[in-house]
Design a protein around this nucleic acid. Structure first.
Length: 425
RNA sequence: GGAGAGGUGGCAGAGUGGUCGAAUGCACCGCACUCGAAAUGCGGCGUGCCCGCGAGGGUACCGUGGGUUCGAAUCCCACCCUCUCCGCCA
């Protein structure tokens, strides 16, 4: 959500930032509505002021038994009240229009975000690890996975496309990955373990920016709630409408949850395999901090996500997203892309974003800086640390052997009850 | 799901139709006293929005949304949430 005052003060800068996102200028339209809205407000409030004043006088007149004056004043208020509903409606309508307009505008990119149209313009920051040289042709996990317990057919029978069941050693490996990630983020990296609701109300999704624009990407329950598409929604909204005690900042939270996405816009993409599912698990990282700390917090969070890939010895690259590829709420995003041998390319496995005060404004999450009487909006950040399903795919593909078995990465062996290899059946 | 009680400022807690944005206490801030602190005294102390260069003025907000009334924290309706008891249940 954008601050109408900053748009008022510098409409040109606002439009310039929108242009970086590939959007047409909006400040003129916004400010026209804003001006109209304020004019109506002023008029309405003058009416209310007179009504309040007259009502007090009526009280006094009646106490003095001066019915003539009281009746005259009552008549005046009656006239006033005839006009007010129309003004009230107009006030509500312009206010709603302004909110609707502002709520649909994405966050503005940070200055150091590269200009670009789509993912082709993203900038690679670093590469870690060297893709393994295979002495056989590496297979797609969708092909050798079923023999190891990836049950695509079972999932599809139950629930349709993009649902998968995991069985036996595959389920165990998935659990091992999730536990390892959670242990690392709560231990080494100091994020607070959190269990959150998976069903949330409209307000929560508005707060993080999924609503009102992206309802079609979500699943909705019959009682009007929504399944979370990411634990970012639940974790970040924990501070919604709160004034967070300054000494508790930064808040660093993590949660392992299933995530539900309708994938409405991705028909035909990644239809094979375990890459793009309606339901998948993810260890999410969220940080809530003071504005001056969010840049450092962003780097810290990204490092926390990278640590998992490094511990698993999975080659990856870190990419700085360009203006055209960033999500709605982000002002700066790093993607981590893991090497997938079967695709001979890097695929997204984590996205780490600094949202600045964009989400905090939408959900009214504030703090009171030391020595200040004024509350200020917090900064919010979120990142995957990591997407468990995609990490499973990366482990399978990078650790596959010619015989269809998969070696378990060293750090996971304790989580696998000592099992060192997944054997096809 | 049924019955009952209740939702007021950072917290506790008054307030059942007019001068209530709201007593009082605690917490907090400033000042005085003190070498300093405590205690005490005095003063201050909610948020959003609109108007104004400013001083300041206005408006809205007592769970949420409607309604009655010249006037609503207070009356009416609906909904949400919390607590207690009963039922059911992982």
């Amino acid at each position: 959500m954008h601050d109408i005052r900053s748009i008022r003060e510098n409409p040109a800068a606002f439009d310039a930032a929108l242009a970086r996102r590939g959007l047409a200028p909006l400040s003129a339209e916004i400010l026209a509505i804003d001006e109209k809205s304020r004019a109506i407000k002023t008029q309405l409030q003058q009416g209310q002021a007179r009504r309040n004043e007259a009502s007090k006088l009526i009280g006094q007149a009646m106490a003095a038994r001066d019915m003539t004056t009281a009746d005259a004043l009552k008549a005046e208020v009656a006239t006033l009240k005839d006009q007010m509903p129309a003004l009230e409606a107009e006030d509500r309508d312009t206010g709603d229009a302004l909110t609707a307009l502002l709520a649909a505008i994405p966050n503005l990119p940070a200055d150091d975000v590269p200009q670009g149209a789509d993912e082709a313009d993203n900038v690679e920051c670093t590469r870690w690890g060297t893709p393994r040289t295979f002495d056989f042709t590496p297979q797609d996990h969708a092909d050798f996975g079923p023999a190891l317990g990836l049950d695509f057919e079972g999932g599809a029978r139950l629930s349709g496309a993009r649902f998968t069941a995991l069985r036996g050693q595959m389920a165990r490996l998935h659990r091992a990955l999730a536990q390892y990630m959670l242990d690392t983020q709560t231990g080494t990296n100091g994020y607070e373990e959190t269990i959150v609701p998976l069903l949330v109300k409209d307000d929560a999704l508005f707060g993080t920016g999924q609503l009102p624009k992206f309802a079609e990407d979500l699943f909705k329950t019959t009682d009007g709630r929504w399944l979370i598409p990411t634990a970012e929604v639940s974790l970040t909204n924990l501070v919604a409408n709160q004034i967070v005690p300054t000494d508790s900042l930064p808040l660093r939270l993590t949660a392992l949850t299933p995530c539900f996405r309708s994938e409405a816009g991705s028909a035909g993409r990644d239809t094979r395999g375990f890459i793009r599912q309606h339901q998948f698990e993810k260890v999410e990282l969220v940080a809530i901090c003071a504005p001056e700390d969010s840049t450092a917090e962003h780097e810290r969070m990204c490092a926390a996500a990278e640590g998992i890939l490094q511990a698993l010895a999975l080659p990856y690259r870190k990419v700085l997203l360009c203006t055209g590829d960033m999500g709605f709420g982000a002002r700066k995003t790093y993607d981590l892309e893991v090497w997938l041998p079967s695709q001979d390319t890097y695929r997204e496995i984590s996205s780490v974003s600094n949202c600045g005060d964009f989400q905090a404004r939408r959900m009214n999450a504030r703090y009171k800086p030391e020595g200040s009487k004024q509350t200020m909006f917090l900064h919010t950040l979120n990142g995957s640390g990591l997407a468990v399903g995609r990490t499973l795919v990366a482990v399978l593909e990078n650790y596959q052997q010619a015989d269809g078995s998969v070696i378990v990465p060293d750090v996971l062996v304790p989580y696998m009850g000592g099992v060192t290899t997944l054997q096809p059946r």
